[in-house]
Design a protein around this nucleic acid. Sequence first.
DNA 1: CCTTGATCATTT
DNA 2: AAATGATCAAGG
Length: 232
Amino acid sequence: MMQPPDSPPSSEQQLMLRASALAGLTLGELADWAGVAVPQDFRREKGWTGQLIERWLGAEAGSRPEQDFPELGIELKTVPIDALGKPLETTYVCFAPLTGIAGQRWEQSNVRHKLARVLWLPVEGSRDIPPGQRRVGAPVLWSPNTDELLLLQQDWEELMDMISLGQVEQITARVGQVLQLRPKAANGKALTQAIGSHGQPIQTRPRGFYLRKNFTQNILLQHLYLSENPLA
DNA sequence: CCTTGATCATTT
DNA sequence: AAATGATCAAGG
């Protein structure tokens, strides 16, 4: 039986070694060995899988607005996949700034920084598989290529333009080719300040940036054909 | 309230 | 069946 590390990985290689060691194991095994109870479902513990994987890779717990491995400049994302390897959910990236965004540039945006380097860890997520029996897949270390970067930048600029023009209430999840903007809060009562259609301050639900499923799927698929040893 | 970890539940 | 909009928990 394995045991979770007690310190962050000292190198990218060590991180990948840790992640690769999880491939093929079930969430039940990882939970047992870490002394964590497995929930019947995720209705009341939606972040359970991500937090379990964080422990096994030695990420610092917490809600700091930073990368999971700041020393390595790497962000960790677990992604639920179906039997065919397709993402079952969009991927949350970060909150969207709704005020004080004049002159904000893509190059220095939170989205750009978060996605600079991501360690994707696919996990079986079909609801007909009990959480404890769901298997962890092989890790994929990814940085956006030129095409992906351009798509992300185009979407980010379109969304941020709408926000700065006071059109945040008109933004639906349909806007954006690969990046979308959706509510992100504890509930519908949470409100934050934004810009209204006449430039006046308004109260609206906080929003977050999410990656569409197809975009994430292409990342995982590319590695299937283009990486040296995708199954290692 | 904000940010982290995301999935749920209803609509389309 | 897929996508959108809503929601749950914990740390700060």
